[in-house]
C-alpha cells in the first residue's frame, strides 16, 4: 500500500476523541470524530472487541427499547427540529456477533441525533472493514453552547494510545481484573 503524502479526510477536518471501557466493560472503546463545525460522528474504536479476532456480525439493532427506535429519528429544517436528544450514556444500537456476544454502542456525548447509519444494516461488513468511515454508527449535533464542553471527559488520541499500549503490556492481568 502506498504511503499517503497528505492527511486523510478525517485528519483534515475532524478531531478524534475516545471513551474507553464503556460502562466498565473491558475494551468496549468508542471513537468520537468531531468536525470543526461541532458535528460528531460516533464510531467503534479500532480496539473494540467486535473488531477483534475475526468476529462476524449476526445482527445490528437500532430498536433500543420497546418504545424507542433510533430508526424512527427524523429531523427537519436548519435547526434539526424533532431529533431525539441523547445524553452521554444513551444507547444507540445493540450489535450481536455470531458468537452470540451482544454489545451496546453508546452516544458518548450529549446532543441531538441527526442520523444513524442504515447502510450497516444491509452490509454489516462495512462496520468491520471501515469502522471509522463508512461503518460509522451515528451522527450527533451537540448544542452550540456545549460544543467545547462535551469532549472534556473524553480521551485524546494520545491518551487513548497510552491506554491501549498499557493494556498490551499487561494483557492477561488487566483482562482478568476487569472481568472480575
Amino acid at each position: 500500500m502506498e504511503d499517503r503524502k497528505t492527511p486523510s479526510v478525517i485528519d483534515r477536518y475532524f478531531t478524534r476523541w475516545y471513551r474507553t471501557d464503556l460502562k466498565g466493560k473491558a475494551r468496549e472503546d468508542h471513537c468520537i470524530l468531531q468536525h470543526s463545525n461541532r458535528i460528531c460522528v460516533i464510531t467503534l474504536a479500532e480496539s473494540h472487541p467486535i473488531l477483534q479476532n475475526g468476529r462476524k456480525i449476526k445482527n445490528i439493532n437500532y430498536q433500543i427499547s420497546d418504545g424507542c427506535s433510533r430508526l424512527k429519528n427524523k429531523v427537519s429544517g436548519k435547526s434539526k427540529r424533532g431529533g431525539q436528544f441523547l445524553t452521554e450514556f444513551a444507547p444507540l444500537c445493540r450489535i450481536t456477533c455470531t458468537d452470540e456476544k451482544e454489545y451496546t454502542i453508546f452516544s458518548c456525548i450529549r446532543g441531538r441525533l441527526l442520523e444513524v447509519n442504515e447502510a450497516i444494516l444491509d452490509r454489516p461488513e462495512l462496520l468491520l472493514e471501515k469502522p471509522s468511515t463508512e461503518g460509522y454508527i451515528a451522527v450527533i449535533l451537540p448544542k452550540f453552547e456545549e460544543s467545547k464542553s462535551i469532549t472534556e471527559g473524553l480521551l485524546t488520541r494520545e491518551q487513548y494510545e497510552e491506554v491501549h499500549s498499557k493494556r498490551t503490556n499487561q494483557q492477561e492481568p488487566s483482562l482478568v481484573q476487569l472481568a472480575l
Binding site: 477536518y13 468536525h35 463545525n37 461541532r38 458535528i39 460522528v41 429531523v75 427537519s76 429544517g77 436548519k78 434539526k80 441527526l114 442520523e115 451522527v139 449535533l141
Partner: peptide
C-alpha cells in the same frame, strides 16, 4: 447526496 457533514450544521438534512 446526503447533506455533507461539513455543512450539515447550517443546512437541513
Amino acid at each position: 447526496q446526503k447533506t455533507p457533514l461539513r455543512v450539515l450544521h447550517r443546512r437541513p438534512l
